[in-house]
């Protein structure tokens, strides 16, 4: 399977340094923030996707989508795990004990799941971005990050195959389906653009060759999105206005509701073994 996301050249972080086993102390804060943004995105997407488990439109598809939810949660756990190795609490405590203002996800991922068209479109927009980012991160100067990216990239291949197969058929299948997909794309678009909002300190990480510049990945992603959606007969909005703020901890009411449910039981006794 060829790289389904881009076909274009991937953006590798500009680096001629040798691989780092431990990150430089002055970059630790920025690195942890970057990893948190990665983890929070995946955690919330996994959570939202799993809201379909048992409620999917077809038995077979219900099963496939539940696997993708598990994949995203698994990715989140790996990113939280890397932060844990940098001195943060366990993945459980990072995900289940943190208040909304401390979450650095893009707001795209916290939005209510909506109908199945919205879930498919969100998943696909995010997967295209994630694959690009992971490919770039495989060149990270910080080895644990490069290793993790290499591992996670594999699962993205399936996600894109799944998304692509449905998108193309549904958008061409019937007006009803195309309208639902187009509506979802129009609504989600400003949020999707903000996937590329950088976390504070990203520029220093880019300079150290640890992460790629979000601003460099964004146009590559946008081109891939336009190609794929327009091939399916959908219109990608021209707007460049992104709903940013997520990477600074500014979120909507959806995240508060989500966290109340997700963390409620765990927080009822955080010291207990669940």
């Amino acid at each position: 399977m060829a790289n389904p996301a881009t076909g274009a050249a991937t953006v590798a972080p500009a680096t001629d340094r040798t691989a780092l086993d431990t990150p430089p102390p002055e970059l630790l804060g920025a690195l942890k923030r970057y990893l948190l943004a990665l983890a929070d995105d995946e955690m919330l997407l996994g959570h939202r996707d799993a809201e379909w488990t048992g409620l999917g439109p077809i038995l077979e598809e219900d099963i496939a989508f539940s696997s993708m939810a598990q994949d995203e949660l698994g990715h989140a756990k790996i990113w939280y795990g890397l932060r844990h190795e940098l001195g943060e609490p366990s993945p459980d405590r990072q995900a289940f004990l943190r208040d909304a203002p401390d979450w650095l996800n893009a707001r795209l991922l916290e939005l209510d799941r909506g109908d199945y068209a919205a879930s498919l479109v969100r998943q696909y927009l995010f997967d295209l971005a994630e694959l690009l980012r992971l490919e770039a991160l495989t060149g990270s100067a910080w080895k644990p990050l490069a290793d993790a990216a290499l591992k996670l990239r594999q699962e993205e291949k399936y996600h894109l195959l799944h998304g692509q197969a449905y998108l193309e058929r549904l958008a061409k299948g019937a007006d009803e389906a195309r309208d639902l997909l187009q509506a979802a794309l129009d609504r989600l678009w400003p949020y999707a653009l903000a996937i590329w909002e950088p976390v504070e300190g990203e520029a220093d990480l880019v300079a150290a060759g640890i992460v790629p510049a979000s601003a460099a990945l964004a146009p590559v992603w946008r081109a891939a999105v336009v190609t794929r959606f327009e091939r399916a007969g959908l219109t990608v909005p021209l707007s460049h206005d992104a709903v940013t703020g997520g990477r600074r901890g500014e979120h909507g009411p959806e995240l508060v509701t989500l966290l109340a449910a997700m963390q409620g039981l765990y927080r009822s006794d955080p010291e207990a073994d669940w």
Binding site: I58, L59, E61, A64, S66, S67, Y158, Y166, R169
Partner: peptide, 15 residues
């Protein structure tokens, strides 16, 4: 159950 072979393959993997 699948609408065509390609979706059948996509679904078969996880099923």
């Amino acid at each position: 159950h699948a609408p065509d072979a390609e979706i059948a393959l996509v679904l078969a993997k996880e099923n």
